[in-house]
Design a protein around this nucleic acid. Structure first.
Length: 735
DNA sequence: GAGTTTGAAACT
DNA sequence: CAGTTTCAAACTC
């Protein structure tokens, strides 16, 4: 797989959905070249794109589901680093949903030999899927506005697609998912979400000619001399694509029409030009497969043809590359997926987003519950965009332009990355200043070797990337074994160690109760702040954009997102003084939130009506308060986080989240599906659950009962939560 | 950019 | 489980 040939192939795939546009022809000429950068290209595929798809299509659930299903690894494009390059491959086991990171290492390469399994198992069918995948990617990209086209990503994925079985088997060893469901889903589902994507631009032409996805694969093979049947194709899994297709009612007519349009839309958005990080994301397809089966529609038939042959393909990991920082956050893509996952009730299993960071590799969470919030904010944002712009996305005219830009911009993007890499800190600051989400994580570890939870990257389940200024870093693909072993060790100590720190109730719950209140989201363990008053990012709750809860042992909590005591702060001694000072703020703030609450209600009632992009949606009402007047908001951005969980009903999609720019919040927002959430969390866990937004004063609407109820006994809830979490373990890889 | 503060993570 | 140490982010200057 890692062979140079493949890399070349990857590069070629620019995909095209430009067929009609003159640009397309131009690209075709160019495409074959860029083998080196191909990696970048592959990376460019963002989870975002995937996430976006669902948004595009009306069914929110589907979207959410998809995200959950995927394990993603994001890689930043780094020409200098082979590791991140196309070489790294992702594999998912059909059975176990096992994910393995393939590295450049010879071993892995051997496993991935293009010639091997690919051709046999899935290639033909895969083509169909590939197109779908491509479309998805494009659509996603378009939504996300990631400059990099899905094609690249697809290519990377596809290159190794041939070896799926072998890969899967290997991967299985590395990562095992406990959840039987996933496995079953994979096995059972005839369809494979994975699609094989041809690298060559020529393929695009073929596709055009054929007009149908089914034919695409063939055409591609024929025309592309360079691409070997097995090798050339890139495997991508799209949980969503299928859904999308079904939802959209893809017709045999097809792919050309709607799909091509979608493809066009993908185009790279200018937005992505910013820094990019490589993120590898592993997604688990299992859940999604189930979903597919259920949805198996006309479209599915098309897709499935290939899949049926290659069940494993579904679980393949897809490398994504986020176009811009936001994208990086993978979580943009990732983030979205994460969010979706959170929103999605049943199907999602675990995804780690490194999410936050676009460019990082996401390590499959050992624990089922692990969703890394990584780009959640961005994702949400993307989704929102997608939702709002679905129509526009479909518009071919727009798409064409972006694509061309992508090609041209690719070099520029790479340059940007390099530039960014140079000074991580500066970069970060820039991003923060600019308001970009921080989804991408960067660490500055000096002693932990990035193998402890001190390391944000490690804690997020992602590999350190160049932007990191860590020393003696072991959190790199090269040391995969070490990383996995360490993770395992840490998890043995604390199964929830890699679980999302912030848990918000899912859609169903949120819609009625919690959703309206910021309280819906809460920190898993709660904070222990003593001096910061939970008003600084030292506080994990605050950092995560959520209010403190019963679980918190903080002193003098003033968390703008919600005090642990509830709306009424009975405060600790010291706070009384502060309260006075805050009084003014409150007066102003309280009203704002109130306003927002109303708006929220409206949205909930008419979720579709409200445009996602509206500023209001960005943040929770409460969120704004904290930063108002006196205190300056945290550097990065205000945590709009909360908005997602509590305020906005997640119905279908977490629209509000999408808009949220902040990375960290997003990151924390790893969502857990309602179903999955322990009852405690859903109900008891968030004291707020019962609270209604309407309360006039409450900047934060906390249920009155909280104050009274907050007895020490309540804190026990924390323990309960932990217990509940174990339910997710299935996701954790077995070793 | 260096130094300080802070609280989580790790250790005892 | 509590106390202490270590660590790196967040923050300040």
């Amino acid at each position: 797989m890692d062979t140079p040939e493949r890399s070349k192939n990857q590069i070629n795939t620019p995909i095209s959905k430009f067929e009609e546009s003159p640009v397309f022809s131009f690209l075709n000429n160019l495409s074959p070249i860029q083998p080196v950068k191909s990696v970048h290209i592959t990376q460019t595929l963002n989870a975002l794109s995937f996430s976006s798809l669902p948004s595009v299509f009306t069914s929110p659930h589907a979207s959410s589901l998809k995200e959950s299903r995927f394990l993603r690894r994001h890689q930043l494009v780094d020409p200098s680093r082979p590791e991140f390059s196309s070489d790294s491959e992702k594999k998912i086991d059909g059975n176990g949903g096992i994910v393995k990171y393939a590295h450049n290492s010879s071993e892995q390469q051997e496993n991935f030999d293009p010639g091997n399994s690919l051709g046999e198992t899935s290639i033909e069918p895969s083509y169909d899927c590939s197109q779908l995948a491509v479309e998805f990617v494009r659509s996603l990209n378009y939504d996300c506005k990631s400059p990099i086209s899905s094609p690249k990503a697809s290519c990377a994925a596809s290159n190794k697609g041939c070896d799926w079985e072998s890969l899967i088997s290997d991967a299985a060893d590395l990562l095992n998912f406990d959840t039987p469901k996933d496995v079953d889903s994979f096995n059972e589902s005839p369809r494979s979400t994975t699609a094989f994507y041809t690298n060559n631009t020529n393929n695009i032409q073929n596709m055009q000619t054929f007009g149908c996805i089914e034919h695409q694969g063939e055409g591609m093979d024929n025309e592309n001399p360079s691409t070997q049947p097995g090798e050339g194709s890139c495997v991508m899994e799209f949980a969503e694509p299928e859904e999308v297709i079904t939802s959209s009612s893809l017709n045999s007519e097809c792919m050309e029409g709607s799909l091509s349009q979608k493809m066009d839309a993908e185009p790279v958005s200018n937005l992505y030009r910013g820094m990019r990080r490589r993120c590898l994301v592993f997604e688990m397809a299992g859940a999604r497969r189930k979903h597919l089966e259920e949805n198996s529609g006309s479209v599915s038939s098309i897709l499935l043809q290939s899949d049926g042959n290659t069940p494993s393909a579904d679980k393949q990991l897809v490398p994504f590359k986020s176009g811009n920082d936001s994208s990086r956050c993978i979580l943009p893509g990732i983030g979205l997926h994460l969010n979706a996952l959170a929103t999605t009730p049943k199907e999602f299993k675990v995804v780690k987003q490194d999410a936050s960071v676009a460019g990082r590799l996401v390590i499959a969470p050992s624990s089922t519950a692990n969703f890394q919030p990584i780009m959640a904010g961005q994702e949400s944002f993307n989704e929102s965009l997608a939702l709002t712009s679905t129509e526009t996305d479909m518009d071919p005219t727009e798409n064409a332009a972006p694509l061309t830009e992508d090609a041209n911009q690719l070099s520029a993007l790479i340059a940007n990355e390099e530039f960014n890499q140079i000074s991580p800190k500066k970069k970060r600051r820039r991003l923060e200043v600019s308001g970009e989400p921080e989804g991408c994580k960067r660490c500055n570890c000096k002693k932990s070797k990035c193998l402890k939870l001190y390391c944000e990257c490690f804690a997020a389940g992602v590999y350190c990337v160049e932007p990191c200024s860590c020393q003696e870093c072991f959190n790199k693909p090269i040391h995969e074994d070490t990383v996995l072993a360490t993770r395992k060790q840490i998890e043995s100590r604390n199964p929830l160690a890699f679980a999302p720190k912030v848990i918000r109730s899912s859609d169903s719950l949120t819609e009625d109760d919690s959703s309206k209140t910021p309280a819906s989201a809460r920190h898993k363990r709660g904070c222990n702040c003593k001096k910061s008053g939970c008003l600084k990012k030292y506080c994990e709750c605050y950092q995560g954009g959520v209010g403190c809860s019963i679980n918190c042992r903080c002193e003098g909590c003033k968390n703008a997102f919600g005090r642990k005591d509830g709306s009424i702060y009975i405060g600790t001694e010291a706070e009384l003084e502060e309260d006075e000072t805050d009084a003014l703020e409150k007066t102003v703030k309280d009203r704002k939130p109130h306003k927002t609450a109303i708006q929220v209600d409206v949205e909930q009632q008419n979720p579709e009506s409200a445009p996602p992009a509206t500023p209001l949606r960005f943040g929770r009402p409460s969120v704004q308060l904290p930063f108002s007047s006196k205190k300056k908001p945290p550097r990065s951005s205000l945590p709009s986080i909360g908005s997602s969980s509590g305020l906005y009903p997640i119905q279908g999609l977490a629209k509000p989240n999408l808009l949220h720019p902040q990375p960290k919040f997003d990151k924390h927002f790893q969502t857990v599906q309602e179903d999955e959430l322990p009852e405690i969390l859903q109900g008891n866990g968030s004291p707020i659950g019962g609270i209604k937004l309407a309360s006039p004063n409450s900047k934060r609407v906390s249920p009155p009962h909280c104050d009274f109820e907050m007895s020490p006994g309540r804190r026990s809830s924390r323990k309960l939560i932990l217990q509940s979490i174990p339910a997710f373990p299935s996701l954790t890889p077995k070793h």
